[in-house]
Design a binder for these strands. Structure first.
Lengths: 302, 302
DNA sequence: CAATGCGGTGCGGAAAACGCACCGCTCATG
DNA sequence: CATGAGCGGTGCGTTTTCCGCACCGCATTG
């Protein structure tokens, strides 16, 4: 939209941290971009950027302005999608921020199912940690967030929460795979391939082990769920994952996924949420609906 | 703000109902304004105005757009006032929609008190009926509304509510002025000067009388509270008003204001409210605070 | 101390916006 | 039934705004 260029450009400058870098990304010369920033500041009567030797940085007034600008840009997108919707075009865009466990199977399936109905809708999926996920909601770079056990933030509005019991994941021919439910003390006797400490599943494990006398000594640690999965296929080790991160097809053939007894590890919660107070674009709202139905059909919803 | 001109102009066209009229008010030629509207519609991909022989009218898409546009314009005002506030300027503007009873004494006093602290803040007070008050909140032409017994609307967010017992108002030398509390049947024996049926106080009276055998035959009816007041000063008639509409100074010298017994007329409620979901500009929020304190100090708050 | 990267500015040309005059249309009115 | 008023829309010349280029001063850095 031409009439929101000022906001778009200011947003670009704030994100890039420098007028020259933002100029590249917006296909403008630094001089033109600089003048637009100056013109905006003059209209407003105050500067919104601190000029530093290595670039620019938002000042207090700038923080207020950038919040407004991003909210306005996002809301204009919603307006466009609402209008597109009422003219029957069914176009739109959905930006998702989520943790790694979602990318394995659940999200791709859900997006494919959604795009079967609305092929003109585009998606953006960004894998982030909990903090970055919340930030993405706040600066409108994500419409929906899917996180495991987030720190409660007042701006995070929970749309749905799903119980996720921690599962032990191993090769299908692993001795433990014959059991339906596993105790934690059985698992720790085997080589452990653990997700990095930044992940929610790891945190759950550590809290559980802290309550017992046993010890959590990983033989392998990785921040890549794919790598952990390949590792337990290659040797008789055990890794851990929440059910939503275990592709069902693979679980039947090569991998086995068995729940840990709830007495050992209490179930965690997977949350779907949006920025509080925001009206989601039509496409995003519809996708949220579909996810909610999928959750309800396949998992325990609380 | 230059970068929001498109929104400002579209809003003007929507309000004027015709491009030519809007062109006059915005100091533009009809051709220029027409082209801006066309350009905006082309960007958006859909028309937002129906072209009629006598002017233009918003279509469905236009209704969505105009809501967004007005929200953004109002929010930009809030941003400006927040910025002005943090640079210590204490400037701003408060737009109030209220019913007539407020104009007599309460609002002028409160505004004067406020402007003693913040002389650079400007005010706009529009007297409207209940319906128009809600509309004013919705199209952002008012920040705060003060209404007596409004129809509950989902978009009206109540900030405070105050009990207001109906009072009989008469000259200070009127026989009834000697009593502290009056029964309705005593009042109706005297000539009655009633507010017009559109007002909340009149409605309360009629409902009260309907429950009795007596009759409500006004000798005078007016939509001007000032006129009603002057009338009861000139002859021994009685009019009715809620306490907030009776100036305290005058009440002591020329006018007497005596509550009607609650058994006859149950107390009404005066509401202060804003549009739901909106963040008020700093000046308006501060004024709301002051009003809330004034209400709490002088009246029964529920 | 030179090199690099930053924001800021003067200037000429490109692009957008505007005002003017005018068109076609509908509808109230005499 | 004619006619004029009021409406949205358009072509064109002019004015205003915006942009890119070249360049400056400055701080940081290797």
């Amino acid at each position: 939209m031409r009439h929101l260029t000022s906001f778009r450009l200011i947003d670009a400058v704030a994100r890039a941290g420098s007028i020259r870098k933002a100029a590249e990304r917006t296909n403008l010369t630094p001089s033109a971009l600089n003048r637009r920033v100056q013109a905006f500041e003059e209209e407003l009567g105050v500067t919104i950027f601190e000029r530093l030797p290595r670039g620019v940085k938002l000042n207090t007034a700038g923080e207020i302005v950038i919040q407004h600008a991003r909210a306005q840009l996002a809301d204009m997108d919603r307006v466009r999608s609402q209008i597109a919707d009422l003219s029957g075009m069914r176009r739109g865009h959905v930006a998702i921020a989520c943790s790694q466990a979602l990318t394995t199977a659940f999200l791709p399936e859900q997006i494919a199912a959604y795009r079967a109905d609305y092929p003109a809708v585009t998606f953006d999926v960004q894998v982030r940690d909990r903090l970055a996920t919340e930030e993405a909601l706040l600066d409108f770079s994500a419409d929906v967030a899917l996180v495991f056990e987030p720190t409660a933030s007042p701006d995070f509005h929970t749309l749905m929460s799903v119980r996720q019991q921690l599962h032990a994941v191993m090769a299908i021919d692993h001795p433990l795979a014959e059991r339906a439910v596993l105790r934690l003390r059985e698992c720790v006797r085997w080589p452990l391939a653990l997700p990095a400490p930044m992940f929610g599943g790891r945190k759950m494990l550590e809290e559980a082990v802290a309550r017992t006398s046993s010890d959590l000594r990983p033989t392998l640690e990785s921040n890549s769920f794919v790598f952990l999965k390949e590792h337990v296929l290659a040797e008789p080790a055990i890794t851990f994952q929440i059910p939503i991160g275990v592709p069902e097809a693979e679980a039947g053939t090569r991998l086995a996924s068995r729940p840990i007894d709830e007495r050992d590890v209490p179930a965690g919660v997977l949350l779907m949420g949006q920025r509080r107070g925001r009206t989601l674009p039509v496409a995003a709202a519809r996708f949220v609906d579909q996810l909610a139905r999928a959750f309800a059909a396949r998992f325990d919803c609380v």
